[in-house]
Amino acid sequence: MKVQSSKHVPASSKQGFKVQSRIGQTFKRLKDNGEKALITFITAGDPDLKTSKEIIFELEKSGADIVELGIPFSDPMADGPTIQAASERALKKGATLSHVLELVRDVRKKSLIPIVLFGYYNPIFIYGVEKFAKDAKNAGADGALVVDLPPEEASELKTHTDRNGLDLIFLLTPTSDDSRMKLVASQGGGFVYYVSVAGITGARKELSNTIQKSVTRVRKFTPLPVGVGFGISTPKQAGEVSRWADAVVMDIEE
């Protein structure tokens, strides 16, 4: 299920973002074909690591372009009940960050789909930021997005993700003013993840009506591709968002 843009790709999708990473290459390839990226999220280790691997292959087969792999955390403050429950199930089965990296290594034996590790800072900090960046890259991960690590606090991790060629992806939100946009644009790699609503993850019935305007605004500050996520759960919503964004991040619920 490639998300076909129902409109012409806007001219504001500027050229010039770095294309050496697998994430950048994916965006470039899709753009050249007039397509948008579909990003899907799953929590690693829910219900178990073996199944997670199979789910990733299934997602790729059904058209996902990038996979966000959630690192389970005991206190996922930015997530709604669905991901919180998934995280709890994964932790109960004993999923650790080391296991998540093993899963990435396993997936890489068969697939080149870009993988973004998505999580909270504490498990990464305890694993060791330098070791994390090295091991994640060696396992075949392409990027990392740490929800509770704004650019202000990110330098101790970014030093190592930069050194190892891992894209550190940052978020922008409806609360971001111009100075936040500038800051994130100057620090971010891979793509900019625009959070479509102020709130936590989870399905919503209605899409925010400011997405188009916001994406246009984000593009003024960065040449990076813009992915839009949080609360997008139906193909109809995805289709609509893909008119403006370069990628749609879908919360797959049940």
Binding site: E152, E153, L171
Partner: peptide, 10 residues
């Protein structure tokens, strides 16, 4: 420090 989501930063 400020280890929070971007939504809360502003």
């Amino acid at each position: 420090g400020r280890y929070i989501s971007e939504t809360l930063m502003p």
